[in-house]
């Protein structure tokens, strides 16, 4: 059983994959940057003592964490238009789904990070008359962020992997182009091997960074 690999033909179509890769990166950047910010507000609501914001945030987080992201993307692309009359493009639906999904996970990271700060820091800020927003911006977030970076990096790794699911709702990102290429060239083995390696090369540095950050954090004893 000797199969002769034909990677040459795949590499010759590198521009196709590169085009897909650009969309993958864009999808990732939009969803991740949005989720980091949005996660803070959901996390604040989740940690709030007030009943209603807490309830809404909890429901949101549990809903998005306990359903497959594929179902979420399908829902935004195929189901939501029936309800709202607004048909997003595949890219918009994917970006929206990934953004909301990652926000739910980021919210939990924010909540844990904010709670890890000693109560005295909040009190000291309040005692000099800071508003809640000033407290967050000047005192709480700058201190909590270092502790949360490894967790956010891990989340980024998960999101990067998730972007591939956008191909199932016809977003022409890397995975989608790979499927096209594999049927055009009749070389699925080579195509998916190359694409797996591309993803690995993109994502693994993130994982390594998370390891390193975690080690540094542990050695600092923070």
């Amino acid at each position: 059983m000797s199969y002769s690999f034909q990677f040459g033909e795949i590499l010759a179509n590198g521009d196709l994959l590169l085009r897909g890769l650009k969309l993958t990166v864009l999808l990732f950047a939009l969803a991740f940057s949005g989720a980091l910010v949005c996660g803070l507000f959901i996390g604040l609501a989740r940690g709030s003592a007030r009943r209603l914001p807490n309830l809404i945030a909890t429901a949101y987080i549990e809903l998005f964490r306990n359903t497959p992201v594929l179902v979420q993307l399908i829902w935004f692309y195929y189901a939501m238009p029936a309800l709202t009359g607004w048909q997003p493009t595949a890219f918009t639906a994917a970006a929206l789904g990934l953004f909301l999904n990652t926000s739910a996970y980021c919210a939990e990271i924010w909540r844990a990070g904010l709670q890890s700060l000693p109560a005295g820091q909040w009190e000291a800020g309040r005692a000099i008359g800071m508003s809640e927003w000033q407290l967050l911006r000047r005192i709480v977030v700058p201190q909590a962020i270092a502790r949360m970076v490894p967790a956010f990096t891990n989340r980024g790794v998960e999101l990067a992997k998730m972007t591939s699911i956008a191909s199932t709702i016809t977003v022409q990102e890397l995975m989608y182009e790979a499927k096209m290429l594999s049927t055009q060239t009749f070389l699925p083995l080579e195509t998916f091997t190359v694409v797996a390696v591309i993803y690995f090369v993109l994502i693994y540095p993130g994982t390594l960074a998370a390891y390193a950050l975690e080690r540094r954090l542990n050695s600092k004893g923070a």
Binding site: P118, G120, Q121, E123, A124, G125, R126, A127, I128, G129, M130, S131, E132, I139, Q143
Partner: peptide, 22 residues
Amino acid sequence: SAELRRLRTRVGMIFQQFNLFP
């Protein structure tokens, strides 16, 4: 909260645990 902030700029507090911003 605006009133509380005004109050706290007029009444300073020193804590047992210092609570400096690290």
